[in-house]
Design a protein around this nucleic acid. Structure first.
Lengths: 234, 234
DNA sequence: CTTGCTCATATTATCAACAATTTTTGCGCA
DNA sequence: TGCGCAAAAATTGTTGATAATATGAGCAAG
């Protein structure tokens, strides 16, 4: 097989830089200097420049004329706005999933539900968080609305810095597990309206958790540093 | 005052090219060749290149490695997906608007409602279409969710090619006017739930209109050519 | 007549150097 | 010491040239 050299480099750099941003390897508001990044990723400034402008379109960085790029900082207000939006759109996803789910997919979702319950039972919080991300991803796939899926993935990427490891908040899994199970039941029962309202209740509780955890201490418990490639909101 | 030469040019070109795309000055699937556009807009290829990549992020063009940019074509399926998404998000906007609307804003909205009714009464379809866009824009402003607003504006831009002048469909205004008035009443009465469901019903009917008009003849009545900077969905 | 291949051409992707702009530093002066 | 200003440094914006890739035409073989 042939290497796909050139564009691969730009795209590759874009993905690597995005991953680094999502992992929090650069601090919010930190300046992203083209020359430095060019050296770090072993490409020319030209490539870095283009990548930064593309990431601006994803709202991951801010670029100001002649002043360069910075890591975009998310205010609490914005985080809440985004989560409100997620509440609507995830609701849509849940409803469509309930309409379209197939028997095989029902099986998969129920298995996921049991895995989540087991994880909470056994106190395996990381696994719970992973299953949670998997659940939301499955629903997106079942709902089969590519536009909405792309949007949610973008919103989640922006949120990573704010909501990482929400499930490490003491008592949080006890709240969110039943919410998740409600969603699964409604979707598997082909009940769009119930699925939508279950999802809305769930993300409503996420909204409150974000507001509170951010009010409490600007860093949620359990993790002073950046999240390590951790997944979306529980 | 000094000219802000460099970036201003890039931003300017971006807006002009976007406007041209929204007006349909380039056909769907048409290749957008960097060198040609560079000459057309009297800037260097470099600027065009960046602009094209930014417009890709807005889903107005598609860029493939080594194959360049094309005008993105919207399938009916995608148009319906986008409108479904709009249904959710506009619903959110309506609900928040109902929560936050001020007395002065209530006045403005009611005035808009009367203007719409008058326009339909007098058969002034273009004015009706403009008022419709103004209504949705007002609601976005009242709801004050910048993230959702930006999203809706992006989605509307993508839809322009598909939904232009939906209000020219015979009988359409008679259907959509009462829907609009319902929304206004609910929002002005500070009833979020009612406002949301009124908005959902409205965009539900837009959904059906799009599906039907596209099924009937691939070009909606009244306009064989591109829309002229016309506004969002009625 | 169609299919597959090679080469010429068009186009994009990248690079390195240069120009323009902003930010910082250092200095003179009150 | 603190302030204003000018030069220097750092950084971004732009250009033209070059490399890499895709596309299409022409030709040979089935």
């Amino acid at each position: 097989m042939k290497q796909r050299s050139t564009r691969a480099r730009a795209d590759d750099v874009r993905q690597r830089l995005r991953a680094a941003l999502l992992q929090g390897r650069y601090a919010p508001r930190q300046r992203l200097i083209e020359a430095e990044l060019a050296e770090e990723y072993a490409v020319s400034r030209f490539v870095i420049r283009n990548v930064l402008h593309q990431l601006e379109a994803e709202s991951l960085v801010e670029v100001q004329p002649h002043r360069g790029a910075r890591v975009r900082e998310l205010s609490l207000a914005e985080a809440l706005e985004i989560t409100e939006l997620r509440q609507s759109v995830e609701g849509l996803i849940a409803a469509r999933a309930a309409e379209r789910i197939s028997p095989a997919q029902i099986d998969g979702l129920q298995r996921l539900g049991r895995a989540m319950a087991d994880a909470v039972e056994g106190g395996e919080l990381v696994r719970y968080s992973e299953s949670n991300a998997a659940l939301h991803a499955s629903l997106r796939e079942i709902a089969a609305n590519a536009t909405a899926t792309a949007l949610l993935e973008r919103l989640n990427a922006q949120m990573v810095r704010h909501q990482f490891m929400l499930s490490l908040i003491p008592g949080r899994p006890r709240v969110s597990l039943p919410e998740h199970l409600d969603i699964i039941v409604a979707v598997c029962a082909h009940e769009p309206a119930a699925a939508e309202s279950a999802m809305r209740r769930h993300i409503g509780s996420v909204l409150r958790a974000i507001a509170e955890s951010d009010a409490a201490g600007s860093r949620a418990p359990g993790m002073p540093g950046p999240a390590k490639g951790m997944a979306a909101a529980p």
